[in-house]
Design a protein around this nucleic acid. Structure first.
Lengths: 81, 81
DNA sequence: CGGCATTATCTGTTGAATCGTATATATTGA
DNA sequence: TCAATATATACGATTCAACAGATAATGCCG
């Protein structure tokens, strides 16, 4: 179902995609989530590892939720190398 | 599907439940995730807001994944009071 | 009760996330 | 092209997660 997040890069890509789909600017998301525009930029580019609180607030401002799902066995595990 | 996480309390409950189901001790999860047992305790009791990296590593050690899903229908929102 | 295992909490320290603010660099539209 | 808008970066200051390393509290079972 939803997109699996295993790194801050994954998170950033998902956030940016969702934001574009809603036709919002970084500053709009920032205001809704009570953070700086600069931080939204940093999150989207995966430049920083955010705190869970921050992630939840940003996602909420995009009408998204964080969910815990069983790890699906996928063929190729890049961390195995 | 998966459990929705909207607070560190939610996360803590989910982690503890998953850990119990796998019959692991906090120190086991801590070793797998390369963190202290004390931190696992703090996370489970919701005493702290973890960094995304930490959350991902703990969940991975329990064979769980973080996923982004569209926000479910807005029935009753306890934060509205 | 007594003892072992597990979990919770403490102190001081370090590093990183976030801030405010400002500015530099795209990107877009007229 | 030019200007307005949007995004990325910079920098010092503040806040807080995570650490090491104990120890205290709790749970469990003989």
């Amino acid at each position: 179902m939803g997109k699996i997040i295993r790194s801050n890069k994954d998170l950033g890509a998902a956030i940016r995609l969702a934001r574009k789909n809603k036709d919002l600017r970084q500053v709009d998301v920032a205001r809704k989530a009570s953070i700086r525009q600069a931080l939204v930029s940093e999150l989207e580019t995966g430049a920083t590892t955010a705190k869970l609180d921050t992630v939840i607030r940003v996602l909420a401002s995009l009408d998204l939720d964080l969910s815990i799902v069983p790890r699906r066995k996928t063929g190729f595990d890049p961390t195995a190398y």
